[in-house]
């Protein structure tokens, strides 16, 4: 039994099926990169794992417990599974420090002093300790994403979901965000990351999952997927990526 399991997960928006039986098993401490064309369902998959979307078929299990479907404690699940989005992550009316401490205080019930001490440690880790009292609109996009990541980390999640966290950034800001992800991966956090940063995926991922039209078409180590993709669709997709200069 894997740490995080998706078994035959189905999800549709109205009549439009987006996930059509996704099965995916992820071990603890693994870094999994989801790749695939725009619209293939990467974001939807991550949102389902975080219970931001309801699924219509199959189930999702975390550490053996079913965490999808009616009646589950979504807030308890989200304490274990953090997510960072492409953009609009931070709360614009709060300082960086308050962004990070909001849910440790309000959800975990930790004391303010305690939560702030932890937040400052995390901010230091990503090189933003001087920005504690700044507001999000005073930060660069890269700095905002770094804050978003440590805000998710402040909940001590067991799994971190990252949904194209660098695609809204200027190229020169991408590296500073990816460096943090690399750090977290080395520390052994379980990470599922939807991304178009293929060279980063190649370097850091334990597994690459190629999603196509709502199913997992191919899955393997970066060597297998990037080196010798077996499926024709994967080959076509990777060719386009190479042509775009992203690999």
């Amino acid at each position: 039994m894997a740490f995080l399991e998706l078994n035959d997960v189905e999800k549709s928006y109205g009549e439009n099926p987006v996930l059509r039986g996704v099965t995916l098993h992820i071990e603890k401490h693994q870094v999994v990169c989801l790749i695939g064309a725009s619209g293939c369902g990467k974001s939807t998959l991550l949102r389902c794992v975080n219970a931001l979307e309801e699924i219509q078929g199959g189930d999702i299990r975390l550490d053996g417990d079913v965490v999808s479907g009616e009646g589950i404690d979504v807030n308890a699940l989200r304490r274990k599974v953090g997510i960072v989005f492409q953009s609009f992550n931070l709360f614009p009316h709060m300082s960086v420090l308050n962004n990070v401490t909001l849910s440790p205080i309000r959800v975990l019930g930790r004391s303010r002093a305690d939560a702030e001490a932890q937040a400052r440690t995390l901010l230091k880790r990503v090189g933003l300790e001087e920005k504690a009292s700044a507001f999000p609109d005073q930060l660069s996009g890269g700095q905002q994403q770094r804050v978003a990541i440590i805000r998710a980390l402040a909940m001590n999640p067991e799994v971190l979901l990252l949904d194209e966290i660098t695609s809204a950034l200027d190229p020169e800001l991408v590296a500073e965000v990816l460096n943090i992800v690399r750090d977290l991966a080395e520390d052994g956090l379980t990470i599922i990351m939807a991304t178009h940063e293929m060279s980063f995926a190649q370097e850091v991922a334990d597994q690459i999952v190629f999603l196509h039209e709502g199913v997992v078409l191919e899955q393997g180590t970066p060597k297998e997927i990037f080196g010798a993709p077996t499926h024709e669709r994967t080959q076509v997709f990777l060719k386009k990526i190479v042509a775009a200069g992203r690999l």
Binding site: N50, V74, N75, R78, F88, F91, L108, M155
Partner: peptide
């Protein structure tokens, strides 16, 4: 903003 807040367990 709702997604971001809910995903933090609020």
């Amino acid at each position: 903003q709702v997604s971001a807040a809910r995903s933090l367990g609020l």
